[in-house]
Structures are given as structure tokens and as C-alpha cells.
Computed example of a mutant assay.
Amino acid sequence: MTATAGFEMPPTSIAALQALAIAARRGEAQAPKLTPGALKLLEQLLGAPEPAATLSISGLAERNGVNASSLTRLAHALELSGFKALQALFRADAASGAFYSTRAERLLDLSHSAASEARGPQQQQLWDEESINLARTLEHLSEKSLAQAVQALIEARRIHVVGQRACFAGAHYLAYYLGYLRGDVRLVDSLGGTNLELARELGEGDLVVGIAYRPETRVSVDYCQQAQEQGARLLALTNHPASRLAEMAWLTLVAQAQGPFFFNPMGSLFVTLETLLACMAHEMGADAVASIRRREAMIARWQVE
């Protein structure tokens, strides 16, 4: 291992890898000699660390619009043994716990170091990436999976919806509007710390909708595991197919969430939820209309504003 101009080769952490990328972008004399394509690829990996940590070499290459050999050549240019050694840096970073702050720092550093004409205004990047997220979510949302999820939401005896921290907004949204379409829907909100006790209500014929984005909240994972042990089925909504909830679930819907944003982009999640609710209402037909009218009548009676 050699130390050069304040950074090390080969890099042993994401912070070191980031320093190398910045030095290369600035054209510093002691920076690693990367081709323009290799530098762009490295910055793409640093800007979206989740797929770099979880995807196969072929999947990651496809996502970034390059050949798998480009990832291997990048690793060698960084004096790493190969793609697995490069990916190990991202996986170690993913397990560190400092997810959002590290990502924010990395994105800010890279945006300052990269040529502005190549990257474009930050707000335009956000819009463009969210559009890509929506397109990829739709592309991978099969008609079969959507139909299975909708049928499960209609037929389940009881439904519990769980999502903590940032995903609580999506969980609340889904549970609230499911309540317009059917009965026996409960939002698991952690109030009073009685999550696992609530899961014991569930059994065969019941459904848990678990919503969790990386880094997944242990409360959500534990709740879903307990519900499964009681005999309930799990429908998972997540931003990566290798998540713990996805591994546990009977059915998983993936809402893509990548891009130049400090936190997890949530646009594709809410569009997925809207799609589920719309398809559910369409499938229920007149029953959905009648259920919504009963809810509206109750709201009017109690003058809820």
C-alpha cells in the first residue's frame, strides 16, 4: 500500500475512494490515472452506493450503461484485485451505520469537484433521476405481481401496515386509504412500544404490508418476522430486492430509489402505492364506491374537516 498526496492506494474505505475520485477530477498530479469514462463510472458508483453494494457485476454494469469489464478495469486502475474488492468497500460502508451523513458528504464533494456542464444543475438532476426511478419501477412491476398484491389486499381477513421512520409516511398513506376501501386495516405506529404484541393478533388469512428502505429499521423487520411466525403473509415494498424484508416476503414490489439526494427518494414508492389503491378500487368496482361513500358519510356526520 502506498500513500500519495493525502490519499492511499489501493483505497481501503469509501472515504479514501471518494478522495481519489476528487483528486482525479481535479487533475492532481499524484491522482490515479483514470480515463474520462472510468472517472465518470467511479462518480456514478459513489453517487449511488446502494446498487454498488448489492448488485452483481452484470447488474451494476447494466445499471450504469457499461460493460462488466469496465468495472473490472476500474478496480485494477485503483490497484484493487478486482470487482469484488471494489464492491467490498461499498458493502463495508453500507454496514457502518453512518448512511445519510456519509452520502450527503459524498454527494456534496462530488458535485463541487465535477465539471458543472457535465453534471447540470442539482435540481435538474433530482427531477431527471426521479423520472428514471419511476420508469424503472414501472418496468419491473409485472402485471402478475401487481394482480397478486391487489388480490391479497382485497381478500385478506385483516391487514397490518408497518413502516417506520421515513417509511412511516408511506405506511400511513396506504393504511389510511385502504380504510376507505375495506375494513380491518391497522397502521402499526409503535405507539407505546407494543408492536410485537400487535403482531400476535395475526394468523392465517391475514396480511402484513411491510415498507422498509435501506437502512431498514429493526422494528419493522422484527414485526414482519413475528407476523409470519403467527401464520400471516408478508407483502414487502422496498427499494432493493436484496433487502431483509424482500428475503422474508411472500411477494415483493420494488420501488426504485436512486439519485443525487441525501436521503431515500420516495416518489416511486408513493406512485406504487397509488397504483395499488387504484387497481384495488377498480377490481372491487361498486363495492369500492359503496365503501368510500360509507366513509364519507361518517366524516360528514361528525363534521370532520
Results as ranks from 00 to 15, higher is better:
residue 254 V to Q: 08
residue 50 E to W: 06
residue 168 F to G: 09
residue 159 I to P: 01
residue 19 A to F: 09
residue 18 Q to C: 06
residue 202 L to V: 11
residue 119 R to H: 14
residue 15 A to R: 07
residue 121 P to C: 10
residue 14 I to F: 00
residue 106 R to Y: 00
residue 132 I to P: 01
residue 198 L to F: 09
residue 273 L to M: 01
residue 259 G to D: 04
residue 238 T to S: 12
residue 282 H to N: 15
residue 203 G to K: 09
residue 222 D to C: 07
residue 167 C to D: 12
residue 225 Q to L: 09
residue 182 R to I: 07
residue 296 E to P: 11
residue 119 R to F: 13
residue 106 R to V: 04
residue 144 K to C: 13
residue 292 I to N: 07
residue 9 M to D: 05
residue 116 S to W: 11
residue 264 N to P: 11
residue 101 S to I: 10
residue 229 E to P: 01
residue 23 A to S: 13
residue 215 P to M: 11
residue 255 A to I: 02
residue 45 L to T: 00
residue 253 L to P: 00
residue 134 L to Y: 05
residue 107 L to Q: 12
residue 19 A to R: 09
residue 83 F to W: 02
residue 139 E to I: 07
residue 67 N to R: 14
residue 234 L to W: 03
residue 54 T to I: 14
residue 43 E to M: 15
residue 101 S to W: 03
residue 185 V to M: 02
residue 148 Q to T: 12
residue 237 L to A: 04
residue 20 L to E: 01
residue 187 L to E: 06
residue 212 A to T: 00
residue 279 C to L: 12
residue 269 L to M: 02
residue 73 R to Q: 09
residue 219 V to I: 11
residue 202 L to M: 04
residue 129 E to L: 12
residue 277 L to Y: 02
residue 169 A to T: 11
residue 196 L to N: 02
residue 31 A to V: 02
residue 125 Q to S: 10
residue 216 E to T: 06
residue 17 L to T: 01
residue 220 S to V: 15
residue 203 G to F: 12
residue 200 R to L: 15
residue 272 T to H: 08
residue 10 P to D: 10
residue 22 I to V: 15
residue 74 L to V: 08
residue 146 L to M: 13
residue 79 E to V: 08
residue 114 A to M: 10
residue 144 K to G: 14
residue 205 G to C: 06
residue 297 A to V: 14
residue 71 L to S: 00
residue 297 A to D: 12
residue 192 G to L: 05
residue 190 S to T: 12
residue 294 R to H: 15
residue 77 A to S: 14
residue 94 A to M: 09
residue 182 R to Y: 03
residue 197 E to P: 04
residue 43 E to A: 10
